[in-house]
Design a protein around this nucleic acid. Structure first.
Lengths: 126, 126, 126, 126
DNA sequence: GTGGTCTAGACCACT
DNA sequence: GTGGTCTAGACCACA
């Protein structure tokens, strides 16, 4: 279900977090869905349970999930999607401002957007 | 000349690197300009010379500067500016693809660009 | 496992780098093999961990190894071997061109090659 | 007359030395030819006289030139050319042995030699 | 346990 | 003066 890249400089728990947030944003994980248990996920991914637990903890701290002792970890029912979108937009604006600073032409950016939205929705290879 | 943010989670040498690259991209530092000496910059910023040296060394490995032992460290004359712009654009496209994935409307992105490029906004709060 | 020559003018970290690259080229170290830990190797060689770390970091920057914080340093799985051979051949051609420039006879070079490849000579005295 | 590359990692005095040796090997500088004076050469190259002096000193130590106090520095009349060729051949053998170690095919090396000796005598770009 | 970062202070070669 | 290298020893995040 999740994909980890050991060569990625980002710590594993952060990769996990990011993917869970992404899945929530994409509607693959919906409010009140239960996440896999720490142990099962750790087992499945071949990583340390502590690592999974850390990801879950941070997600809980940031309000994306809630934990019920003895039952498991569930996706929050609050308006997470808007939150995720908001963060992405903030990130987007930041990058645009950098582009502006470096005198990259506005038209170039807009045409990039057009082509991405029209074309396939494939990921860019890094 | 340079500004370090101790609260930033990024390592000091990376902050320094980023700023130097930015200054080159902005034309504040031009090809063959000499960077401050390792010692003087370390002194000025209140950090260890090794930390500055590490930043300089990585910049050299990546081709942004060249260093001459016994003389100092200089901005490369190759087309760095295009390189920096290229990286920013890549980053931009990546973010746009994420936005697309999360169903953020194209028009929203474009209008953000318009306002940033017209308004001449300075910086987003982090 | 590794051998350092204190009399060699080359810096320690460079000697280490060179040997690791050689071991990869020779198939002694294979893709995804784990390198000795920074601390253990430093201890074994009687040098400072920072020195080993520097070697590892440069190897990573050049793509020969990848390192996972908290786990260790591993040989890359990309086609490093071809890379190493390519570099050696480049070096070879450079030397041949020098020989040509100095009017060294072609036959002399070729016969040297023959004798080395047939004899299975070990090493030249430095 | 001489060409220095400040970006080259080799120290300037070594670059100078190498070129003088090369010129001797090529017959551009002949036995008992006088080298430019330390000061004039330093002036011409825009470098420190100490740097030139160091190059000359090392050349003298290695027997390539001899210095006459108050008169200048001259190319030795001993059999330098053979010496230079000998060094190159030694270097060549070393590289060939490395190639052998890395399982590079003998035929590849020989055909490289053929093409270099038949083709132009241009330098390889680094 | 691992590697990453940083400091303090030293010595060296080069200019 | 410059940068390059190395040591000793520290703290941190990650697994």
């Amino acid at each position: 279900m999740f994909m980890l890249n050991p060569q990625d400089k980002a710590p594993i728990f952060a990769q996990l977090k990011k993917q869970i947030i992404e899945f929530i944003g994409l509607g693959i994980l919906n409010p009140n869905d239960q996440l896999p248990s720490v142990r099962s996920l750790a087992n499945e991914l071949g990583i340390n349970p502590n690592t999974v637990a850390k990801a879950y903890q941070e997600l809980e701290l940031q309000g994306y999930v809630y934990t019920v002792a003895g039952k498991g970890c569930f996706v929050s029912q609050v308006n997470i999607e808007a939150d995720i979108q908001g963060n992405k937009i903030k990130e987007f604006k930041q990058v645009v401002m950098d582009c502006h600073k470096f005198n990259i032409e506005k038209e170039l950016l807009i045409s990039s957007i057009e082509s991405i939205y029209e074309g396939g929705m494939k990921h860019a290879e890094n």
